[in-house]
Simulated scan of single mutants.
Amino acid sequence: MNADALLERGLLQEKDQNHDGAESTFKEVLKTDQANKFAWYNLGVLAQQDGRPADARNAYDRALKIDRSFTSALFNEAVLLKSSEPDKAIKLLKRAVAVNPKASTAYLHLGQTLAKRGRDDEARDAFRRAVAADPSLHSYLPEAFKDSVSPSPTTSQAGGTR
C-alpha cells in the first residue's frame, strides 16, 4: 500500500477513535517515507490527545524539520507549550501567522499568551487581527481586551501582509 493510501487509512482509524491502529499505520508510513510531514504531524496529534506531550512535541518537531512553515504543526506545538514554555509558544504562533495571516485561532492564542506575559500592546494587536479574521472570536477575548477590540469584520487591522 502506498503512503497516501496508508495516510488515509490512518486518518480513518483516528476518526473512528482507533488510536492504536492509527498510530501503527502512521508509523508504517514512516518506514517507507521518513520525510512524510503528515505522518509525523498525525503522530503528534495522537500523542497530544493521549496525554503524551513529550512524544507529541517530538513528532511536531520532526514535521517542522521537514516543512518549517507547516502551520498545523506550528499551531499544535504552540498550544502544547503555551503553559510550560510561553516564549517558545509565542515564537511558533508568530511563525504560523506569518505563513497564514488569516489564521484567526492562531492570533487568538498568540494574544492570550502575550497577555499572560504582560505584553498588552502586542496582545491587543493579535486580538484585533483574530477578530478581524473571525468576528465570532470576540467572545473568547479576555475581559480586559473586549472593549478595545471591535468585533466588526471591517476592522482596519485585518490580515496585514499578503
Rank of each mutant, 00 (worst) to 15 (best):
A115W: 10
D50Y: 00
R62P: 01
K65W: 01
K82S: 12
A103C: 00
V149H: 11
Q48M: 10
R68D: 13
V97Q: 05
H19S: 12
R129F: 04
Q13F: 05
D20S: 13
D16M: 08
S136W: 00
Q157F: 14
S104K: 06
R62F: 05
Y60W: 09
A130Y: 00
E23G: 14
F127C: 02
S72P: 12
N58E: 15
T155H: 10
V45S: 10
D87K: 14
E77Y: 02
L7F: 09
A130P: 03
G21Y: 04
S72Y: 00
A73N: 08
E143N: 09
F26H: 03
K94L: 09
L93D: 06
R62L: 05
D87Q: 14
G159F: 08
N42C: 06
K82D: 04
T155L: 13
S139L: 02
Q34R: 13
K65V: 07
R95W: 00
S24Q: 14
R62N: 13
S69C: 01
D147I: 01
D134Q: 14
L74Y: 12
D16K: 04
D16N: 13
L93R: 06
L74E: 04
A54N: 13
P135E: 09
A103F: 14
F70S: 05
A39N: 12
L141E: 07
E8S: 14
Q157R: 11
H19I: 07
P153I: 11
L141V: 03
D50Q: 15
W40M: 02
K37H: 07
A103T: 00
P142Y: 10
A126L: 03
W40A: 05
G21N: 02
